[in-house]
């Protein structure tokens, strides 16, 4: 991850999240664009006020990021936030977009013109979504959702590249098997072929890991495992 785009709205959550990630040596070397977008306003006065406020939001964000200031580029832009975020990410060939999300369901997101939903659908770049109501914690437990797909393999590789240089971090390799019942499989995690293969690779790289297996619907299963294990960052392919 060499280029990170942080879309800031003034609440400070994405900045906090970045600072947790910044403990990862690989992230410290990244260049960071901090973007604030001012949506169209009805009057010139309103626009001027919003731009001024935006400048302050950017200045505060730059101050709060724990990274060498020479690596930060602040950008204040006008327009429709969902288009601008996607556009800037493409322009700068961003490797990771960090942005907030309200945790709306798909329908609510469409009705409410959700920026993160739109960027998720239109951009093919990795995204780190920080929901309004989550508590951003120091990263000690990272979970990666595994299955047989290439997408899961990619996310596993990304997880490995993040945790390799980190001390005191545990990588949870998680799989939910749709055909199984949770209590049938939970004690057999190490024997699962998908997890066993990933575990072998993690072991070779000296990464501290644990395997967790469950059954049932993958979505709720993954969320439940993440909550049970008190996970600080969940990685999954999409």
């Amino acid at each position: 991850i060499r280029k990170i785009l942080i879309s800031v709205a003034g609440r400070g959550l994405c900045e906090e999240m970045f600072n947790m990630l910044a403990e990862i040596p690989a992230i410290q070397q990244a260049s960071v664009t901090v973007l604030h977008v001012v949506p169209p306003q009805v009057t010139a006065e309103a626009m001027s006020a919003k731009l001024e406020e935006g400048g302050k939001i950017l200045a505060d964000a730059v101050k709060s990021l724990k990274v060498d200031p020479s690596r930060i580029t602040p950008r204040l832009k006008q327009g429709d936030p969902k288009n601008i975020v996607t556009q800037v990410a493409d322009e700068e060939e961003t490797d990771l977009i960090i942005m907030g999300s309200r945790g709306l369901t798909r329908l609510e997101a469409i009705l409410e013109n959700s920026v993160s939903q739109y960027v998720f659908q239109l951009s093919s770049r990795p995204m780190l979504l920080v929901k309004d109501d989550v508590y951003v914690k120091q990263i000690r437990r990272i979970m990666v959702a595994m299955d047989k797909s290439d997408a899961a393999q990619n996310s596993f590789e990304l997880a490995l590249s993040l945790v390799r240089d980190m001390k005191n971090v545990q990588l949870y390799l998680a799989r939910v098997i749709p055909e199984a019942k949770p209590d049938q499989v939970m004690s057999n995690a190490e024997a699962d072929p998908v997890l066993a293969e990933a575990a072998a690779k993690a072991k070779r790289l000296g990464v501290s890991y644990r395997c967790v297996l469950s059954g049932g619907k993958p979505g709720p299963g993954i969320c439940e495992l993440a909550e049970d294990k008190n996970i600080d960052l969940l990685i999954l392919g999409s």
Binding site: S124, L128, L129, K131, S155, G219, L234
Partner: peptide, 18 residues
């Protein structure tokens, strides 16, 4: 999809790799 569900419901920050 799985990523749709998880990014809405998960109780922690979610990194979607592509």
């Amino acid at each position: 999809s799985l990523s749709d569900y998880v990014r809405v419901k998960a109780n922690c920050p979610v990194l979607l790799s592509r």
